[in-house]
Computed example of a mutant assay.
Amino acid sequence: MNLEKILAISGKPGLYVLQVQTRTGFVAESLVDGKKITVNLKSNVSLLSEISIYTYDAEKPLSQIMQTIADKENNGPTISHKEDNATLIAYFKEILPDYDEERVYPSDIKKVLNWYNMLQLKGLIMESIIEETATENVDDVAAENPVLEIVTPVEKEEVIKE
């Protein structure tokens, strides 16, 4: 699941999409209401692609966890993050049975489920699954046909310029 440009900004509700980088920070658009905000470099910002959840063995990337939720829910919405803690913990154990219960708090589980539902509501869960499937298909074709070279649009432009 591609979460490269999705941001969580400390002190701001919801998720944001990185739009433009500026000299003093960047501009981000809210997934909730579509408003654009300016964020300076001093703000505590987390890319969802860089977030992982602790398990007893290692850390598991958030993208894999969200993919597991999407598979379980058939790309539909999941339970509300406003459910009681026991329900949230039981659901999360279905998704990630070996998560570290001492280091992953109910508030973390609420964030993950809330973020998933936000992304699903905006159609970003389905888009990322389609992108991931297309990438896997290209990799499969290249692996089956080692002589076949896959040329990206950038390489085509370079060839035309020469």
Results as ranks from 00 to 15, higher is better:
residue 118 M to S: 06
residue 139 D to Q: 14
residue 53 I to F: 15
residue 108 D to R: 14
residue 118 M to N: 08
residue 10 S to E: 15
residue 39 V to W: 00
residue 154 V to T: 12
residue 34 G to A: 00
residue 86 A to V: 11
residue 161 K to P: 03
residue 15 L to G: 10
residue 153 P to C: 09
residue 113 L to Y: 03
residue 40 N to M: 02
residue 15 L to T: 14
residue 23 R to Q: 03
residue 48 L to D: 06
residue 76 G to L: 04
residue 24 T to S: 14
residue 29 E to F: 08
residue 92 F to D: 12
residue 151 V to F: 08
residue 72 K to S: 13
residue 162 E to M: 09
residue 57 D to N: 10
residue 21 Q to E: 04
residue 50 E to C: 00
residue 122 K to P: 06
residue 34 G to W: 03
residue 34 G to S: 04
residue 147 V to F: 08
residue 142 A to F: 02
residue 14 G to M: 03
residue 75 N to G: 03
residue 106 P to V: 10
residue 132 E to H: 13
residue 102 E to S: 01
residue 122 K to S: 14
residue 55 T to A: 13
residue 37 I to W: 00
residue 93 K to I: 10
residue 87 T to Q: 06
residue 90 A to G: 07
residue 92 F to Y: 04
residue 15 L to R: 03
residue 53 I to K: 01
residue 30 S to Q: 11
residue 110 K to P: 11
residue 100 D to E: 10
residue 132 E to K: 09
residue 104 V to Q: 05
residue 114 N to T: 00
residue 39 V to T: 01
residue 147 V to C: 14
residue 4 E to S: 15
residue 130 I to E: 15
residue 31 L to A: 02
residue 28 A to R: 08
residue 133 T to N: 12
residue 126 M to H: 08
residue 156 K to A: 07
residue 83 E to W: 01
residue 138 V to E: 12
residue 97 P to A: 03
residue 158 E to A: 10
residue 84 D to C: 11
residue 136 E to A: 15
residue 118 M to V: 12
residue 42 K to L: 14
residue 6 I to K: 02
residue 8 A to M: 12
residue 148 L to V: 05
residue 70 A to D: 13
residue 41 L to I: 06
residue 37 I to Q: 07
residue 5 K to W: 01
residue 70 A to S: 15
residue 124 L to Q: 05
residue 56 Y to N: 15
residue 88 L to V: 07
residue 41 L to T: 06
residue 108 D to M: 10
residue 58 A to P: 00
residue 116 Y to R: 13
residue 22 T to K: 04
residue 33 D to R: 01
residue 77 P to C: 02
residue 152 T to K: 08
residue 48 L to F: 13
residue 15 L to V: 08
residue 71 D to R: 07
residue 147 V to W: 07
residue 79 I to R: 15
residue 68 T to D: 15
residue 161 K to H: 12
residue 36 K to M: 11
residue 80 S to H: 04
residue 111 K to M: 12
residue 39 V to C: 05
residue 35 K to V: 04
residue 69 I to E: 06
residue 17 V to I: 09
residue 120 Q to I: 13
residue 3 L to Y: 01
residue 69 I to S: 05
residue 86 A to D: 10
residue 124 L to C: 10
residue 2 N to G: 01
residue 73 E to K: 07
residue 161 K to Q: 06
residue 43 S to A: 14
residue 96 L to G: 01
residue 20 V to G: 00
residue 20 V to I: 08
residue 10 S to K: 08
residue 70 A to L: 13
residue 103 R to W: 05
residue 30 S to M: 06
residue 72 K to F: 15
residue 96 L to F: 09
residue 146 P to D: 02
residue 108 D to K: 12
residue 61 P to L: 03
residue 122 K to Q: 15
residue 38 T to I: 07
residue 7 L to I: 03
residue 129 I to L: 09
residue 111 K to V: 02
residue 153 P to Q: 07
residue 88 L to I: 07
residue 155 E to H: 11
